[in-house]
Design a protein around this nucleic acid. Structure first.
Lengths: 218, 218
DNA sequence: ACGTTAAGTTAGTCTTGCCTAATTTTATTA
DNA sequence: TAATAAAATTAGGCAAGACTAACTTAACGT
């Protein structure tokens, strides 16, 4: 199988691919992983040799069918472990990502499937991301953010785009969870800040960045 | 905290210490890990610098109080994960060791305690080894083996000293489990083979090595 | 179109953790 | 006790995966 590093690169490329659908450049990968672009070039060569990705200066980095399969499995494991940590071990929303980051690399042919069964075949992880099934398919991924809502409109929080504990802890503080109802009261033209009402409560102002990190369903 | 390699050395030293109580030499560690003695010497230096072990040519390798604490935690995590894999995910006896070998290195301050609670604070792991408590204490460890039983005597299997899948699969084949009753019918003087009766069934002959790998309670 | 900046790449280095080969130290035994 | 065997150690090296510095290629604004 793959090394820890290879798996992290694969997952990163997969995420960038899902997020943007745009051309994936070495620099983008480097930024995403906090690595040096030179290191990324090394790994691109390695993963290309292993036929997990292809790289073309025009098209950028792309996952091969095998690379997609492997990356999907890593994501599947990550999200299943997150469900386990939250539901079974009682961790908080903001604590599970980093631990799942380690657990996802445990190698065993049947582990993910057994865990999936044990957890009752969940469709979404605690952050609202769909969990790939054993066959690679997965439920719909949400893409509309709070920043896309029209003034006066209401929506439901269905997922988060950012899983850092800084963001998640902020959500806890604001009492926002998966399923929370948010109404967009006003957009401030100056800096695109958003004035919102959470569950019909008093108005609060959040940044544009915040709005873009919260996935919603209208 | 420690690297994967450091943790594996710590655990190995801990095991050798528990097993024999004798002097722990670089060669013994090398054999146990399947590494070259030269590599062991490197790591001894590293762990000594980190104040986890002490090394004296006369006394051999010894764990410092901190080293004991850290090693105990690794063993705790390993055995708790084994219980989880067997009881919750339905793995077989002989499949869990290698997976737990990876899971034991997951680093999180509260993970072991949460898992312990989730599993109902088990005292022993599926191989009959006592699980260290959060405070480092643990239940009695059995030390008498089937090879110590007197001819005609009976005993109960309480643990295995060998956790390789070769041995465990052999046990499955013989229908021996934790709690199985075994009577020693005869010892063959020539090669110390043992003629036994498992749960009162027909006589079977096992090797001395086999007898020494099965921990029992009289 | 050309010069400047950004992106990508190459070359060389470092650390970790392992190795082999050679050497020194310790044990064993004739 | 000397000879030999075994164990421990040192020296040097290698692969993975990161880095910095330097160089090349691409992009972009005037």
């Amino acid at each position: 199988m793959h090394t820890l590093s290879e798996e992290n690169y694969l997952k990163c490329i997969y995420r960038l691919w899902q997020d943007k659908g745009q051309k994936i450049t070495p620099t983008a990968i480097a930024e995403s992983l906090g690595n040096n672009p030179a290191s990324v070039v090394d790994m691109i060569r390695k993963l290309t040799d292993k036929q997990l990705i292809s790289y073309d200066k025009k098209k950028g980095v792309e996952l091969t069918p095998q690379g997609q399969k492997d990356a999907t499995l890593i994501v599947r494991r990550h999200r299943l472990w997150e469900v386990f940590l939250l539901e079974k071990l009682g961790y908080n929303w903001d604590e599970i990502h980093d631990i799942a980051e380690e657990l996802e690399h445990i190698k065993d042919a049947t582990l993910a499937d057994r865990l999936d069964k044990f957890l009752g075949f969940p469709e979404y992880d605690p952050h609202g991301d769909p969990i790939p099934k054993a066959n690679g398919k997965m439920a719909k991924r949400f893409s509309t953010t709070l920043a896309d809502v029209k003034t006066g409109g209401s929506c439901l929080v269905v997922a988060v785009k950012d899983t850092t504990s800084q963001f998640l802890q902020y959500l806890v503080k604001l009492d926002i969870n998966i399923g929370t109802k948010i109404q967009l009261i006003e957009k401030i033209p100056f800096d695109s800040s958003l004035v919102i009402s959470i569950n019909g409560n008093e108005h609060k102002t959040v940044s544009q960045k915040f709005g873009e990190s919260l996935l919603i369903d209208m």
